[in-house]
Design a protein around this nucleic acid. Structure first.
Lengths: 126, 126
DNA sequence: TATAGTGTATGGTGACACCGTACAATTTAG
DNA sequence: CTAAATTGTACGGTGTCACCATACACTATA
């Protein structure tokens, strides 16, 4: 399982890890029932503490994306996250689009960018 | 200048304030040369400390969006933010789109959502 | 039923968000 | 021209939280 974290990202590491795994699940690189690597392995790969990865796993479990069982590992539980309100989904989208607009990108270019990203996310549909 | 912050947002307040003002500038509700309210006034409106708002202003100044002068106020300097790398722009977009996909929204609906948001941002283009 | 593998809990450290207050620069009133 | 008001900045303190090291608890397997 290939994921990357970035020191200068600003967001906490455990959240970056969760985001990376969300992407893997959305893209279908981690299917329902698939097992996730042990927290110690991911931690070693990234050079961080195992608790940091465990925090990411807990966050994903709260969203219903994975199932974590004490002693056994963690597995992908669903490709559908639960419980995010409309506003919680819209706000980050608006912020990202605002940044693009302020960077000077024209509308058409932004739509192309979005389309590209979406294609990458939906390539291997269920 | 109407902005809102949310305790349960997760992001620090000063960053939320900066984001709100970014939106105002992008939408043209704050034009180049327009003056921003004093940090004390914004702080009072939001019920936070003036230094929290000052931190937001500094962040916007670093991006070249506003100009802050000691003793005089802050004014909008440009509608174009500087220096954001391609990855820094793409990563939040990808994260937002991933959340939408995991929420179960179909591609077409996501595109509509994006289009709506973009229209709101570009309505009063200069 | 040990032993290895895996997630969890606990306690400590450092960074940082936020606050209250004092300071410095600019503008404005007189 | 100068004092007062207005505005951003600097400093010190407090609480939260991300991260770590280590010990513990549950599960699977030999």
């Amino acid at each position: 399982m290939y994921i990357v974290v970035d020191e200068r990202d600003g967001r906490p590491i455990y959240r970056q890890v969760a985001d990376e795994i969300r992407g893997l699940i959305a893209r279908g690189e981690l299917r329902e029932g698939a097992g996730l690597p042990p927290v110690r392995q991911v931690a070693a790969d990234l050079g961080v503490n195992l608790n940091t990865v465990a925090a990411a796993y807990r966050e994903l479990q709260r969203e219903g994306l994975i199932s974590v069982r004490h002693g056994a590992g963690a597995t992908v539980a669903s490709r559908t996250a639960r419980g995010k309100s409309d506003g919680e989904l819209r706000k980050p989208l608006r912020a990202a689009l605002t940044a693009l607009v302020l960077a000077g990108l024209p509308r058409a270019e932004i739509m192309t960018l979005v389309s590209d990203e979406l294609r990458g996310l939906l390539k291997r549909g269920k």
